[in-house]
Each structure stands twice: as structure tokens, then as C-alpha cells.
């Protein structure tokens, strides 16, 4: 290990650097979103992500160390602490779901059928599109499990011959994209029916999509929460079968 690396670990290796950087880029994003009058590319999460990656890349170049090494040793200790709190935040969605139990009791069959059949249709389209773009079997296999949360999608991706890191990237970008574009997409495709809207946001945007759905309506939020749970379990079962069917798993 070089002297620069030792210095970096001494001064930036504590969690506080990662926490401060996350806060600074996110707060900057919020400020930009406010003065940009809600321009969709200025969503705090999107700005925070891009700016954070840029700052880490710039610092790594300045110190003359590898970007991935710098990320792992300087940012990750703090980032992991914030990341851990996604656990209780995910559990928290039980509350909006419980509050709209009336909808769950009336529409449970539609919810279940829509998620299973909707996922099957989506898988065919994603497969076709990936093939059309020119991804190889490894790339296609990495795209298929992205409807599940990262912790489920990654091992499935590995099992069907994909690259878990690419699948994780897909899950993360899903969330960031949905958070930034949801309002616009809902208008563009006229997704005004709250149950379908919620299930769609929960499936495509995971927990972040659910947070967006709650801002739209309580029904939408509850449906997004139930989608996160059910779609993950459906992906567990359906995606390996689908991959075998299409002959992309080895």
C-alpha cells in the first residue's frame, strides 16, 4: 500500500466522510430542485447520485488512486451506515399497507393476477428488447430479475447466468429513474387508475417507487408496498423458469 493510500484511509476511512458527502450532495440536489422549479432531472436523488459519483471519481483522480478502491475505502464505511436504514424504511411500508386493508381485501385477486401475468408479459418484452439492442445471454440474464429487490435479484441473476453487479445496477437505476420520471410517465401513459398505478410504481421502482406512490395517493402507496413484497416472491419462482424456457440459463 502506497503512502497516499495510507493517508486516505487515516483521514477519510472513517464513516463520517461518507455520511457527510451523502448529505451534502443530497441537500445540494434539494436546493437545485427548488430553484429549478421541479425540473425532473434535478430530482435530489438523481442529482445526489451523479454528483456523488463525480466527486468520488474526481478525488480518486486527484489522489492518483483507483476509483473503485477509493470508493470502497473512503465512501463505503459511511455509505453502508445510511444504506442499513433502508431495512427499517422498507418495513415501514407495512403501515400504509395496513391503513388501506379495505382495498387489499376487495382486490386481492386482481392484485395477484396482475402482478403474475404482468410480470410474464414484461419478461417477454424485456427479453425481446435486450435481444434487439444486442445484449448477449449474460446481459439478458442480468436484465430479467430486476423487478425484485436487489437482495433477491442478485442471487437469481447469478443462478441464471447473469452478472449480479449489472442486476444490482439495474435495480438501483430503476429506483432512481422512477423517482425522477414517475409523474411524467403517469401523464404520458395515462396511468390514473390508482391500483394499477401503485402496483406499477412498486414493481418498477421498488421501495423508492413506493415512496413516490404514497405522495400520489394512499391507495397507490399501499398497492406499491404490496407489489414490492409479492413481485419479489413471484420473481423468485417465475424468472428461473422463464430463463430455462428461453434457453438462456446454462
Amino acid at each position: 500500500m502506497s503512502a497516499t493510500q495510507t493517508t486516505i484511509i487515516t483521514y477519510l476511512g472513517t464513516p463520517i466522510f461518507g455520511i457527510c458527502l451523502s448529505l451534502v450532495v443530497f441537500l445540494f440536489g434539494q436546493w437545485l430542485f427548488k430553484i429549478g422549479k421541479g425540473f425532473f432531472l434535478f430530482q435530489p436523488l438523481f442529482v445526489g447520485m451523479v454528483l456523488g459519483i463525480f466527486i468520488l471519481w474526481l478525488m480518486a483522480k486527484m489522489f492518483g488512486v483507483d476509483v473503485t478502491w477509493f470508493y470502497t475505502n473512503a465512501y463505503k464505511p459511511g455509505g453502508d451506515i445510511i444504506f442499513w436504514f433502508l431495512n427499517p424504511a422498507t418495513i415501514a411500508f407495512a403501515v400504509p399497507l395496513y391503513k388501506r386493508n379495505d382495498i387489499v381485501k376487495r382486490f386481492w385477486l386482481e392484485i395477484l393476477l396482475s402482478l403474475i401475468i404482468g410480470l410474464f408479459i414484461s419478461l417477454f418484452i424485456i427479453y425481446g428488447v435486450s435481444k434487439l439492442i444486442g445484449l448477449d445471454n449474460n446481459g439478458i440474464a442480468s436484465m430479467l430479475p430486476q423487478a425484485a429487490t436487489t437482495a433477491i435479484a442478485m442471487p437469481i441473476s447469478d443462478a441464471i447466468g447473469g452478472t449480479p453487479a449489472i442486476t444490482a445496477m439495474a435495480c438501483i437505476l430503476n429506483a432512481v429513474l422512477i423517482y425522477a420520471l414517475a409523474t411524467w410517465l403517469i401523464k404520458l401513459f395515462h396511468l390514473t387508475e390508482p391500483i394499477g398505478q401503485g402496483l406499477g410504481l412498486g414493481t418498477a421502482g421498488h421501495t423508492v417507487g413506493s415512496a413516490k406512490a404514497i405522495q400520489l395517493s394512499s391507495v397507490s402507496g399501499a398497492m406499491a408496498a404490496i407489489a414490492v413484497v409479492i413481485i419479489s416472491i413471484v420473481v423468485d419462482v417465475v424468472v428461473p423458469t422463464f430463463a430455462n424456457l428461453m434457453g438462456i440459463a446454462h
Partner: peptide
């Protein structure tokens, strides 16, 4: 949640 997701987004640095 949006803030808690920032580290996941920045995690993509490792995927560059």
C-alpha cells in the same frame, strides 16, 4: 427513503 437511497446510487461508482 430518497435520501437513504443516495449511497446505493453512489455505489455505481464501483460499476464504472
Amino acid at each position: 427513503i430518497a435520501f437513504l437511497f443516495v449511497p446505493s446510487g453512489i455505489q455505481l461508482t464501483a460499476s464504472l
